Amino acid sequence: MSNDTESEASSAPAPQGRYVAAVLAGGTVRTAGMTPRRNGTLTVTGRVGTDLTVAEARTAAALALRNALSAVRSVLPSGSSFRPVEMVVYVAAADGFTALSAVADGASDVIAEELGPENLPARSAIGVYTLPGGAPVEISLTATVR
């Protein structure tokens, strides 16, 4: 359950536009919105509630969160650790879909498993009509450096 950069070195996902994956400012790291990409390619697209089930969207949220953790780790000073303090989960939702928290729990589960449940951040789950590239979820993470 360590979040030490030396034991879990990662590289940030490549940006899909003119931005950086993460910024370290003072003692805070903020990530760009991360989608469920693997090697630069979305693993799934569509809107939750019509094209994807909650279970499929939870899996997508878990991958997006892993990308966000990689982005955080990529800008940490050597030997530093971090604590997530805020997570915003955007869900491309079908009309009337309200199980946004259930989708976001896929991301929270990864934090609990990798960093421990005591490191869960404050979280917002927001339903939107569409996300970049047709992604079903997008996650931004803010963390403090220890």
Rank of each mutant, 00 (worst) to 15 (best):
E6C: 12
R30T: 11
T35H: 14
G116Y: 07
L100E: 01
P84V: 11
N39P: 01
A125F: 04
V89C: 06
A93P: 10
F97L: 08
R37D: 07
V75S: 02
E8C: 14
A14C: 00
D109Q: 14
I139T: 03
S140M: 09
T50L: 09
E8Q: 15
A112K: 11
R123M: 10
V145S: 04
G26P: 13
A55V: 05
A64Q: 12
A55R: 13
V23E: 06
G116C: 05
R146Y: 13
A122C: 12
A143C: 08
T98P: 00
G33R: 08
A102P: 05
P77G: 05
I139C: 04
P136S: 06
A92P: 00
S11E: 11
V23T: 10
V85C: 11
T41P: 09
V20K: 03
A135E: 07
V44K: 00
N39A: 11
R30I: 01
F82P: 01
N67G: 02
I111V: 11
D109E: 13
R146F: 05
L65Q: 03
P77R: 15
V23N: 15
E8A: 13
L141Q: 00
P117E: 13
V54T: 03
N39L: 13
I126P: 15
A71K: 03
L100H: 01
S80Y: 14
V145K: 14
A60W: 05
V72R: 05
L69F: 08
E138V: 05
N119T: 02
A64T: 01
G79H: 12
G46V: 04
A99K: 13
L76A: 09
R123V: 11
